[in-house]
């Protein structure tokens, strides 16, 4: 299976996982009156999951040598 198709599937899987993690019932598990390092668990959980999603999506989309991908783009930041 081409790498590009695999990447698309990973993104969809990440989306589904994130959707589940950020909604009932998983979210309700974080809705407790405790703190992690002084920060309420609910907030800590939400921001932690959020950061994880960002990291994971960034890694998934990291440029790879992909022969079937789009044409090489001009150097970024020009």
């Amino acid at each position: 299976m081409p790498e590009s198709k695999r990447r698309n599937e990973r993104l969809v899987a990440l989306f589904v996982a994130a959707l589940l993690a950020l909604n009932f019932p998983l979210l309700s598990l974080a809705s407790v009156m405790k703190q992690v390092w002084g920060i309420p668990v609910l907030y800590f959980y939400l921001f932690f999951v959020w950061a994880f999603i960002i990291l994971a999506s960034g890694l998934t989309l990291k440029r790879t040598r992909d022969p079937s991908g789009p044409a090489p783009e001009p150097p970024a930041g020009t």
Partner: peptide
Amino acid sequence: GAGFLPIYLGPTLAALLWWL
């Protein structure tokens, strides 16, 4: 409390599907 966050979590989720 956390009630403002969905407005920004939604786009984060949507962004995962942007590539497609």
